[in-house]
Simulated scan of single mutants.
Amino acid sequence: MKLVRFLLGLVVPPLGVFLTVGVGSTLLINVLLTLLGWLPGSIHAIWVIAKHEEKLDRGGEIY
């Protein structure tokens, strides 16, 4: 599932973020960045997904 989220984060950034963190301010920021351009949205999506996975690996609290 992790690989699918990363691929979706590259291709359709808001969908990758939605599948990772759900509906919230992070998704709204990603939608706005994606509307400004595909590249900013993709960079943000990959960053959000990677940080989420890092927190899961450390056993920390998720958002």
Rank of each mutant, 00 (worst) to 15 (best):
W38P: 03
P40Q: 12
G60W: 08
V12T: 07
K51E: 15
L56A: 13
L36A: 15
M1F: 05
E61Y: 10
L10T: 11
L19S: 02
R58M: 14
P40C: 06
G60I: 08
L27R: 08
L56N: 09
W47K: 10
I62S: 06
E61D: 08
V21Y: 00
L32R: 03
L3Q: 11
D57K: 15
L35A: 14
A45W: 03
H44T: 08
L3S: 05
G59M: 12
L15P: 01
I43K: 06
G9I: 02
H52E: 14
K51F: 07
A50P: 00
E53Q: 14
G16E: 00
L8R: 01
G22S: 07
L15S: 01
G16H: 06
H44E: 14
Y63R: 12
G41C: 04
V21G: 03
L28S: 13
W47L: 15
V31S: 03
V48Q: 04
I62W: 08
L35M: 11
H52M: 08
H44C: 04
H52N: 11
F18E: 01
V12Q: 01
L28M: 13
L36K: 00
A50L: 10
L8H: 02
M1D: 05
A50C: 03
S42L: 04
G16I: 09
G41R: 00
V4W: 07
T26L: 13
K51H: 07
K2D: 09
P40V: 06
V23R: 15
L27T: 12
L56Q: 15
G9F: 04
G41P: 06
N30V: 12
L35H: 04
S25P: 14
G9V: 08
I49K: 09
K51L: 05
A50E: 09
A50M: 04
